[in-house]
């Protein structure tokens, strides 16, 4: 089996809306697991998702989803589900009809469609509201019924555009747990979210976008490691931070050390984390009591700050 048939591949893809840039020269390979698209409004996240699902045609370049072109919806949507950001539904539909009709279009018999519909609706906990019109649903319920529809046929690729929007904290946690379990089963999950700490919590890898360009991609720590110009921040909790600060400053890779406000920790910035961790090992062996050593800026939030920085984060 070729790598292209196991991954989602963008090859030099550009999309222009007339003169307006959507995305430009995107070359990406997305492996299984949860991949988050992160970037401010208008950075091209939704464009990338719509290109992947054939709702938009690329101006240039090619896209393959597990080896299938988005130009073949009859094959693509047998293995892909897309929970879009569009908050509109076919007129007069109930939640049940929304999922059921999709399954009939998929080719299921009435009995199969009924079974899969209830299974999907149960998964998002909407059984009691299933026969109510979607027009009367709350934002969170609409989000959940879209999630049910996009997963009802058991796809191996799930594309979710802002799926946590409008969900209350309990359902958010349940959805995140559901996504994690689906990813562990080998599913590709591509998610765009504005909530960076949630992206951080659930993502295996990230794609950072800005103004239509991919500015970084990969596992969060890997991307962070490549940012040489930004010293790595390490938070060390210990009983004698002042003494520790004196010791670490002897090391030439340390560019800054700052006492924590509670006086029981030290925030160190280093240009060579590997050497710094070795130094910490030696200091620990020499009797400086270290309670914990935690990287302080290898999360999505920091990556966003370093790479996209001044741009207003999308809310």
């Amino acid at each position: 089996m070729s790598a292209d048939s196991q991954n989602i591949v963008f090859d030099n893809v550009s999309k222009f809306y007339g003169d307006v840039l959507g995305v430009n020269r995107v070359t990406l390979t997305i492996p299984p697991g949860i991949t988050s698209l992160v970037g401010p409004n208008g950075s091209g996240k939704t464009t990338l998702m719509n290109l992947m699902t054939g709702l938009l045609q690329p101006t240039r370049g090619t896209i393959g989803v597990l080896g299938v072109s988005p130009n073949h919806p009859e094959q693509l949507f047998r293995q892909l589900g897309y929970c879009t950001q569009f908050d509109s539904f076919p007129r007069g539909f109930t939640g049940y009809q929304f999922v059921y009709s999709f399954l009939r279009l998929y080719g299921c018999t009435h009995a199969e469609a009924e079974e899969f519909t209830w299974a999907a609706i149960e998964r998002v906990k909407l059984v009691e509201a299933a026969h109510r019109k979607i027009a009367g649903y709350s934002k969170g319920m609409r989000q959940r019924i879209k999630l049910a529809q996009s997963t009802c046929h058991g796809p191996s690729v799930l594309v979710l555009d802002e799926p946590l929007n409008g969900l209350d904290p309990l359902v958010r946690a349940e959805v995140i747990a559901l996504l994690r379990s689906l990813a562990e089963e080998g599913m590709h999950i591509i998610i765009s979210s504005h909530v960076l700490h949630e992206v951080d919590m659930i993502s295996d890898q990230v794609v950072l976008l800005s103004n239509g360009y991919v500015i970084a991609e990969g596992k969060i720590r890997g991307v962070r490691g490549e940012l040489d110009e930004q010293p790595m921040q390490v938070m060390i909790r210990c009983g004698k931070p002042a003494s520790l600060a004196a010791k670490v400053f002897e090391h030439d890779s340390v560019v800054e050390a700052r006492m924590h406000s509670d006086g029981k920790g030290l925030l160190v910035k280093t240009r060579d984390p590997d050497k710094f961790y070795l130094l910490l090992n030696q200091l620990a062996l020499n009797g400086i009591g270290l309670e914990s050593v935690v990287p302080a800026d290898d999360d999505v939030n920091s990556l966003y700050e370093y790479l996209i920085g001044g741009e207003e984060p999308a809310r």
């Binding site: 919806p73 009859e74 879009t84």
Partner: peptide, 17 residues
């Protein structure tokens, strides 16, 4: 106009069909 065409376009149905 109803912004609901994507419902069909996201189903595994050939557009010709």
């Amino acid at each position: 106009l109803d912004r609901s065409l994507h419902y069909y376009f996201l189903a595994p149905v050939r557009r010709e069909i």
